[in-house]
């Protein structure tokens, strides 16, 4: 009874929060609601017994995305203020648009409901106990080099997907850098000694934590994506405190770090091709070691990519 009640409440709160996040007039509050929504979704994944997804959702879906949206909001406000200062008029909201917006929102809402109905119709017709590929994946797990089935799927059974996804991540940062110059966080906290001494402890701890998540990923929930998200969090702290600028001074190094995942993964794929005759087919008995090397490189790239996206553009180029 208790679990059902818990699940019911969770579903209800998720829906209400999603609605609030979309509709809140105060954009800042909307973003906070979005972050809370991400955390609750992580709990929902936990209830669905998908701890790996829960970790990723909490770190990326809620934490990093929240940070990105917040920084976008701050930039938007800054620009609005600048524009308002130029026109020397009051910054009243455009009320006239509100009615039109409400109208299109109703249409969108109706469409979403219709979509929900169609999807429910389709989902309810699915076989109640879909065999899926779980049984086969578990049967082959001993040959995969790791004991965590999620890592086995990501880095062995469907390693090719992951290779392309690491490529998508790299492409994301290339695209953002191509678009514009980044803004460094305005607040330089270097004078706040207490914060700095705290960060001196926290940053290494986060880095060690990322490494731990990577290592534990072979046998338990964790892995390059979760570790990378943690690393990105550390990088974000460093950027916000002004420590990051020294790190990013060396652009070649940063670029190498960003591409490391694709390069190591791609070269590993080619070497495996020469070794075993199969693309990304690890030599028998060595899969665990290969996976660890590839994941370590991917961890660096994922952490750097997710963290640097916060700048919203490329660091200064000489």
């Amino acid at each position: 009874m208790i679990p059902q009640l818990l699940d019911g409440t969770l579903v209800l709160v998720v829906v209400v929060l999603a609605w609030r996040a979309l509709n809140d007039r105060d954009l800042f509050r909307g973003v906070i609601e979005f972050i809370a929504l991400g955390l609750l979704l992580a709990m929902a994944w936990l209830r669905l017994r998908a701890p790996d997804l829960a970790l990723a959702e909490a770190a990326v879906g809620s934490g990093l995305t929240g940070a990105l949206i917040l920084s976008a909001l701050v930039r938007m406000r800054r620009r609005e203020q600048a524009a308002a200062g130029q026109t020397a008029g009051g910054a009243t909201g455009p009320r006239g648009e509100a009615r039109g917006k409400n109208h299109s929102r109703m249409v969108l809402g109706a469409l979403s409901l219709a979509m929900l109905g169609i999807l429910a119709w389709a989902a309810l017709s699915l076989p109640a106990k879909s065999p899926g590929l779980t049984a086969e994946a578990l049967a082959r797990l001993p040959d995969s080099g790791v004991t965590n089935p999620v890592t086995a799927v990501l880095l062995n059974f469907r390693a090719y997907d992951t290779l392309l996804e690491i490529g998508v991540l790299l492409l994301a940062i290339v695209g953002v850098w191509a678009l514009r110059r980044g803004d460094w966080p305005a607040a330089d906290l270097r004078e706040r000694l207490l914060l700095l001494s705290l960060l001196r402890w926290v940053l290494p701890l986060l880095a060690v934590g990322a490494g731990y998540l990577l290592w534990i990923g072979a046998s338990a929930p964790g892995g390059a994506f979760q570790g990378g998200a943690l690393l990105a969090g550390a990088l974000l702290l460093a950027l916000l405190s002004g420590l990051g600028k020294r790190l990013l001074w060396r652009e070649r190094l940063i670029r190498t770090g960003l591409t490391l995942g694709v390069l190591v993964f791609g070269v590993a794929g080619a070497v495996a091709l020469g070794w075993t005759g199969g693309l990304l087919q690890y030599p028998t008995g060595q899969a665990g070691a290969w996976i660890l090397v590839i994941e370590a490189a991917a961890l660096v790239s994922i952490g750097l990519t997710l963290g640097l996206l916060y700048l919203g553009g490329r660091p200064e180029e000489k």
Binding site: L163, R255, T259, V262, L263, G266, G269, L273, G278, L279
Partner: peptide, 25 residues
């Protein structure tokens, strides 16, 4: 050289080149 090599080259070739082109602008 088996077809696997050619397929691998078709995917890994441009992918690795893309990463390198970003590293060495």
């Amino acid at each position: 050289m088996t077809p696997a090599w050619f397929m691998g080259g078709l995917i890994l070739g441009p992918l690795v080149a893309a990463a390198l082109a970003f590293t060495f602008p």
